[in-house]
Simulated assay, not measured.
Amino acid sequence: MKKLAGRNTICKSILTHTHVLQIIDDHQYMWLMAETDAEKRSIKRRLRKQLALAGVSFGGFEMFIHGAVLAPADPQLGAGLLLVGVLVMYLTGGRGHQ
Rank of each mutant, 00 (worst) to 15 (best):
43 I>W: 02
66 H>E: 10
85 G>I: 00
64 F>K: 05
75 P>M: 08
59 G>T: 11
8 N>E: 05
53 L>Q: 09
39 E>P: 03
14 I>D: 05
93 G>N: 01
52 A>G: 09
69 V>M: 10
79 A>R: 08
19 H>W: 07
21 L>K: 00
59 G>P: 04
56 V>Y: 05
62 E>W: 12
84 V>H: 05
37 D>V: 10
36 T>I: 04
32 L>Y: 09
33 M>R: 15
6 G>T: 09
52 A>N: 14
37 D>A: 12
71 A>K: 14
43 I>E: 00
96 G>C: 00
28 Q>C: 10
89 M>Y: 00
86 V>N: 03
96 G>W: 01
54 A>F: 01
34 A>W: 03
83 L>P: 04
44 K>L: 14
9 T>F: 08
42 S>E: 12
58 F>R: 02
25 D>K: 13
65 I>N: 03
29 Y>K: 14
53 L>K: 07
17 H>K: 14
63 M>E: 04
62 E>I: 13
23 I>S: 01
37 D>P: 04
28 Q>K: 11
24 I>L: 10
6 G>H: 09
54 A>W: 01
94 G>F: 02
67 G>N: 03
40 K>Q: 10
49 K>C: 09
66 H>R: 12
89 M>V: 06
46 R>W: 11
42 S>V: 07
82 L>T: 04
97 H>A: 14
83 L>Q: 13
88 V>Y: 01
74 D>M: 06
50 Q>T: 11
73 A>G: 04
13 S>W: 10
98 Q>Y: 10
28 Q>A: 13
35 E>A: 12
63 M>N: 05
66 H>T: 14
16 T>R: 04
93 G>L: 00
27 H>V: 06
56 V>P: 02
13 S>M: 13
82 L>F: 10
19 H>L: 11
86 V>C: 05
23 I>G: 00
70 L>R: 09
74 D>F: 04
17 H>S: 14
83 L>G: 14
13 S>P: 01
82 L>M: 15
8 N>R: 09
91 L>K: 03
11 C>K: 10
38 A>E: 15
17 H>W: 06
74 D>L: 05
69 V>H: 05
14 I>S: 05
97 H>D: 11
61 F>V: 07
36 T>M: 06
31 W>A: 12
31 W>G: 08
94 G>C: 00
32 L>W: 06
2 K>C: 06
45 R>T: 15
84 V>L: 12
21 L>C: 02
5 A>M: 07
57 S>M: 09
3 K>R: 14
11 C>T: 12
39 E>K: 08
38 A>F: 07
4 L>T: 11
14 I>H: 06
76 Q>K: 08
72 P>Y: 01
49 K>T: 13
18 T>C: 03
16 T>K: 05
73 A>C: 04
53 L>I: 06
29 Y>F: 10
52 A>E: 13
16 T>E: 06
94 G>I: 01
76 Q>M: 13
85 G>Q: 00
15 L>I: 03
91 L>S: 04
51 L>S: 04
29 Y>S: 13
24 I>G: 01
26 D>Q: 14
6 G>Y: 08
27 H>A: 09
79 A>Q: 14
42 S>W: 10
